[in-house]
Amino acid sequence: MRFIATGDWQLGMTAHFLSAEARPRYQRARLDAIRRIGELAAEREAAFVLVCGDVFESNQLDRAIVARTFDVLNDFTVPVVLLPGNHDPLDASSIYDSQAFVARQPAEVTVLRDSTPFEVVPGVEIVGAPWFSKRPLSDLVASATADLAEVAPGSVRIIAGHGAVSSLDPDRESLATIDEANLRHILDSGRAQFIALGDRHATYSVTDRIWYPGSPEVTSRREDDPGNVLLVDIESESHVVSVEKIPVGQWTFTVIEAGVDSDDDVSALEARLAAIPDKDRTAVWLVLTGTLSTAAKARLDEVLDHAGDLFALVSLWERHSDIAVVAADEDFAGLGLSGYLQESLDELADRAAGDDASASTAQDALGLLYRFARSGA
C-alpha cells in the first residue's frame, strides 16, 4: 500500500515580506505545488493523499481561496484526507464549516473531524487528531490513540497528528506537545504502522516510521529542508515501511552571509547573486558585515538595487548586519563639489565618524550624496 504524506499547505498565506509584485506569484506557486502532488499521486500510483494539518493559513479567508483549492483538488484521481491543525482548527469559525467549503467540497475530499478510524481505502484506516482550538489543553495524539486496539492482520493503520514532538524542544508553555515515547509505544505495540505529523515545515524523520513531511513550498528562511512530500510504502502483511522524500516546491528562501570590506568584496557578492538561478522564485536575506568606503558602499547599494529588480526579495537582515562607512577624501575627489554640497559633505563626514545614533544615518546620507554627485558629474 502506497500513499503520499504532506502537510502545512497554508493556502492563503499572505507572505507580507514579499513585494506586491512577487506576492501573487508566490501564492500561485503554493497552489501549483498542490497540483504537482496530485500529478505525483497518479504517476506513482498512490492510493490516497494525507494532509497533516494547516491546509489553510487561517479560518478567515476569502472564499476565492477555497474555490481555487477545490479547483485543483478536483483534478486528483485519489482520495484526499485533510486534518485540521492550529491554523485552521475546528472551532466556531472553522473554514471547514463555511458555506464556501461545504457547498463545493469534492466527493473525494474528507475532513477528519474526530478520531474515529476512517477507512480511506479497503484495509487501510487513518486515525486523526484534529485541532478544535488554537491552544489545546492536552496531547491530542495521545487522546486520539488511547483506546486503539492492535491492527488486524492484513490491515494497515496510520496516525495523523499535528504539533511538535517532545524531542524537538517545542513551546514549553504548550500543553499540546506530542509525547514521542507514546508514539513509539503505539508503533511497537502494533496499534499503528506509521505516524505522519504536521506543524514542522521542513521534512524531518523522528524515527523510521514517524515523519514530518514538511510544507510542499517553503514558508520561512529558517527552514532547512522544505518543499517536499513523502511517498510512503507499507507492506500489508509484514508492515515493512519505506519512505521516499520527493521535492515538489519551486521557491527558495536563502540567507547569504558575506564580509564586505572592499570593492572586490562587493564584486564577489554581485557575482554570487548573479549565479543564483530562478531569481523570480528566490527570496534572499543578506547578512553583511564589514567596513566600506563611501564609494564602495554606494556601489553595494547599486548592486542590491539591481538584484532587487530581479529577485522576489533581496533584504538586508538588519539585526545581524553591521556595515560601517568611512568617508575617504579620495571618494569625492574630482566630483567638483562646492558651496552647499561641499558644506553638506563636510558636516556628514563629521557625523559619520561619530559613535552615536546619528552616525549610521549620516553614513547612509553620504552614500546618497555620493551617488547624486556622481550621476550629475
Rank of each mutant, 00 (worst) to 15 (best):
W317P: 01
V248H: 06
T77F: 07
V260G: 05
L310M: 12
L304Q: 04
S267A: 15
R319G: 05
G12I: 02
G85S: 02
F253A: 09
T361I: 11
L292W: 07
A307N: 06
D88V: 08
D309C: 10
D364Y: 09
R104E: 04
T219D: 14
Q250P: 08
E180V: 15
F76Y: 10
S321H: 02
I210D: 03
E180H: 11
A362P: 05
E180M: 11
S344P: 00
A33M: 09
S375V: 05
Y96V: 00
F253R: 15
P216Y: 14
G38P: 02
V120M: 00
E302Y: 09
I4D: 10
A327Q: 04
D225R: 14
T361E: 15
G259T: 14
L148N: 14
A328T: 04
T110C: 00
I210P: 06
D261Q: 05
A107P: 05
V121C: 03
I126V: 12
A352N: 03
R222P: 08
V284T: 06
D114P: 03
D356A: 04
R200F: 05
P117C: 06
S338E: 09
T6H: 09
F118K: 00
L231Y: 07
D233Q: 13
G53C: 12
R157G: 13
T207E: 00
D71L: 14
E270P: 02
R172K: 14
A146S: 12
S174F: 03
V325P: 03
V55N: 13
S189I: 05
V141L: 15
D305S: 15
R299W: 01
Q193C: 10
D199M: 10
G7D: 04
Y204T: 14
S293E: 02
D278S: 15
Y212L: 09
S58I: 12
R113P: 02
T203K: 11
V248S: 09
V232P: 07
V124S: 10
S344G: 01
S315G: 04
A142E: 09
S344F: 02
G163H: 11
L11Y: 07
A5Y: 09
V266N: 10
K245P: 13
S167Y: 07
E180C: 06
S293K: 01
T110S: 08
A327R: 00
W211N: 06
P226C: 12
A15P: 00
P130M: 03
Q342T: 05
A41M: 07
P136F: 14
G154D: 12
A258D: 03
D88G: 07
L50R: 13
L11V: 11
N182K: 11
D346A: 15
S93M: 13
L11K: 09
P130R: 03
T69R: 08
G128L: 01
G161E: 04
G123E: 04
V124W: 00
L316C: 05
L83P: 09
M1R: 11
G163T: 02
D147R: 14
F194Q: 04
V218Y: 13
L269I: 11
L73Y: 04
I256D: 03
C52Y: 08
S215Y: 13
G249R: 09
